[in-house]
Amino acid sequence: MKKENVFEHMEEFEHEEVLFLSDKDTHLRAIIAIHDTTLGPALGGVRIWPYKDEKTVLLEALRLSRSMTYMGAISGADFGGAKAVLWGERQDKNEAYLRAFGRFIHGLGGRFIAYAGLGTDEFDMGQIARETEYVLVTRDENGKVLDSAKLAAYGLYWGMKACNNCLFGIDSLKNKVFAIQGVGEVGSQLVEYLIKEGAHLVITDINYDAIKKIQDNYPEVEAVKPREIYGIKCDFFSPCAISGVITEKTIEKLKCKIIAGSADCMLKDCSVELAEELHKRGILFAPDFAIGGGELVVAAVQSVAMSKSSMFESARRIYNIMGMIFELAKKEKTIPFKAAIKIANERIEKIAKIKRIQRH
């Protein structure tokens, strides 16, 4: 990749900093993109994926980190946005690999704070934390680590209720049909919440073991091949894995009424045009950076030790956040995606203005 292209992309997405990291001994190759630190240190998930080339890794990091800025802003958290993308396979992870990455994070002096993302989990964060304090770990009042995926899924679940209310005037998801793409850390937790409410589920995943685990616990859940999930006739299509799954081609296959999931930047290239196309087709699209922010909503209010029940109660605020987005979209006759970006940007601009005041 030509060096000047990196700066062009940074200017396009309005980034503050992009770091390319490499460690020969552990075969670590990673990019950390820091988008905006107006609200505070840049928080970002750590994902690992076998991207086809360096340019794809860079663009993924840039898009996802900008989305994290929006997520932090709309959730009310004092975090900016960033993303760490590890270029490799999940099996590449080991103690040395993760601790090497942790040392790079520590070298940033707190500008970047990591948490678990696609392909990583709380155990991985624990390995990274052996080399740096700059890792977000959610703990209850007793100091016990809480699985962040459960908070994200619970927030998503309540966000879905808000979507259902917006479209059908009722919170209950009983008898609603859900097509869930990806039943990993967040998707599997979401399945549990929806089953308890009496929803009907169709799932898919590239990992057969993940599907089997779900069906062993819930035999009534139907599974389909990954390419078939888009065409399932359903109320909710819920992408909970990789980004960029809503494209010009996949839109043609969709038979859903609502799109709501935990996947980051599920619109290809985070395209506003695709969001508008969904709206034209009568499909309600829940902005992923809003509905997927359950853990950040908890972080926004966790100034003191909180009980487990209080954390989940806080994650329910996603319902109110989504309601605020839908209300603004209706008021300004725009799509929820644009309304959510406006809310996020307005908070960032207001906080930027007050930060000119010196604290003594």
Rank of each mutant, 00 (worst) to 15 (best):
Q358L: 11
T26C: 03
S188F: 12
V57T: 03
F178G: 04
Y51N: 10
A344V: 05
G44R: 00
A100S: 13
S262V: 04
G323A: 05
S238W: 03
T138A: 07
F289C: 00
F326A: 02
K144W: 10
S22N: 07
K333F: 14
R359F: 14
E313N: 09
P41S: 02
C256W: 02
S262W: 07
K280R: 15
N217W: 00
K176Q: 11
I48S: 01
F104W: 01
E346L: 04
A286W: 02
S243E: 15
Y51A: 06
V301P: 02
I291E: 01
G45N: 02
L59H: 08
M1V: 15
W49G: 04
S67I: 04
V245E: 11
G45R: 02
T132N: 05
Y319M: 08
A153Q: 05
K150D: 14
K24H: 14
G187R: 01
Y319C: 08
I321M: 09
I321A: 04
D216N: 09
E17F: 07
Y208T: 15
S238D: 05
M324V: 10
L146H: 04
T69W: 03
E273Q: 12
E54M: 14
I113V: 15
S65V: 02
A305G: 15
Y218A: 11
A260Y: 08
I48E: 02
M324D: 12
P219N: 12
G244K: 14
S67E: 15
E133H: 09
I105K: 02
E252I: 02
E60N: 13
A260N: 06
L274K: 03
V245R: 09
F168H: 12
M71E: 15
F168M: 07
A210W: 02
L254G: 01
R317A: 13
L190E: 00
Q302I: 11
L39Y: 09
A299W: 07
I351G: 06
I232S: 05
F7V: 10
C256P: 00
F337I: 01
A84Y: 00
Y218Q: 09
R227Y: 09
G261N: 07
Y97V: 06
G323E: 05
R227I: 07
G155A: 11
R66D: 06
M160Y: 04
V137A: 12
E133C: 04
A149E: 03
S314R: 11
L173F: 04
I242F: 15
K225A: 15
R281A: 00
L254A: 00
E276A: 15
D269S: 15
H15C: 13
H200F: 11
V85M: 08
I351R: 05
F237Y: 13
I203S: 13
K331Y: 13
T334E: 10
R316F: 11
